[in-house]
Design a binder for these strands. Structure first.
Lengths: 192, 192
DNA sequence: ACTGTTATGATATAGCATATCTCATAACGT
DNA sequence: ACGTTATGAGATATGCTATATCATAACAGT
């Protein structure tokens, strides 16, 4: 990895910060590229020298965070399965700004869909699904991902009224445990 | 309710059909008002005499369907709770076109959010939530609604590979039963 | 069938955003 | 110090939204 030109790095960071600030302020959809370049104090045409669209900028901005979130997905065979939601919500709390921006764009662009698909595939690859159950593994995995996103979204939109640890417990009880029992691990020590 | 002017009815129906057709063809986001008026063979300015925006048209189009979907939300005290997903997915199948359009706009506009909120409130109003559990009732209700939407979306996007009855069972096992047991009905006859 | 009302089509116009191009300038890496 | 390259400023083309005007045609009620 070659050290980028300082001007490129500078411009891209200015654009990234401007996008985050504007999205948190008034929502991703209504933010224009002109808004971004003006707040970043960067020439309008310069934007397109780096990104082909607003979505492309957001993709770049959320790249690192996403990769780390993928690493926090549940492994159903883990011993500490019940507490595995805690680090996830902790991470969300620490990177709340960027994740808010990402969720603010939910559905808008073809941006959220690949994220959901990648996460779903990771869960299917890293866990041995049951066969012959009522619920197909693809549906259980897809459910897990989308429900986790919805829960995170609820938490952020309500300004995090419960601590991350509590949210982790809710995540386990409401989402992980049912999906795991039904589609992944046969006779789990079910605890209510 | 007075009988509308025939011309108004005609125009609005043409616009509605054009929106549905174009959205199913290439996605809600990229459909322009000009597209709609051209396919409907209606003057461009005429659109704004009826709707202030594309979202307003979609709201009008989905009004009736939405009201009926709200009526299919689960009542946890019902005896036939386990089979209540069947009519829901049956209804989705029968109105697949409009619901596809509605879900194609997911997140885009401030259109889906109020729908989720209304459905969540209905569930909270029509069911007696438990107190003192790990999972707050608002979260359980919100989870139920968003997970149901995600499941329906999965089903439609995969061209309904399972029959509605099977989807109803999946809906119950993965979503309804856990939410009900954890946040609404204390000692349910838990069946796996 | 007559009449006043009203929805429509066609057209023009303004505003805004995206996207690309050119050229002089300034900052960069070596 | 020098060649390279990113940037800013400006012009331009395109497409979509939104509103206004005016003649025409379709409507509802009598």
């Amino acid at each position: 990895m070659e050290a980028q030109d300082k001007r490129i790095k500078r411009t891209q960071q200015l654009l990234a910060k401007a996008l985050i600030g504007l999205t948190l302020e008034k929502g991703y959809e209504v933010v224009t590229i002109r808004d971004i370049t003006e707040l970043a104090d960067v020439g309008y045409a310069t934007f397109f020298r780096h990104y082909s669209s607003k979505d492309a900028l957001l993709r770049d901005v959320s790249e690192v965070v996403l990769a780390e979130v993928y690493g926090l997905l549940p492994h159903f065979s883990d011993a500490d399965i019940a507490t595995l939601g805690f680090p996830l919500f902790q991470y969300v709390q620490e990177h709340a700004s960027i994740i808010r921006v990402l969720l603010s764009s939910r559905g808008t662009s073809p941006l959220m869909q690949p994220i959901i698909e990648i996460a779903t595939q990771k869960i299917l690859n890293e866990n041995k699904p049951l066969t012959g159950t009522i619920v197909p593994p693809e549906i259980a995995a897809h459910h897990l991902v989308t429900a986790a996103i919805a829960l995170i979204q609820w938490w952020l939109e309500h300004d995090m009224p419960y601590p991350a640890e509590h949210m982790g417990s809710i995540f386990y009880a409401l989402i992980v445990q049912p999906a795991r029992t039904i589609a992944f691990i046969p006779n789990s020590h079910a605890r209510l």
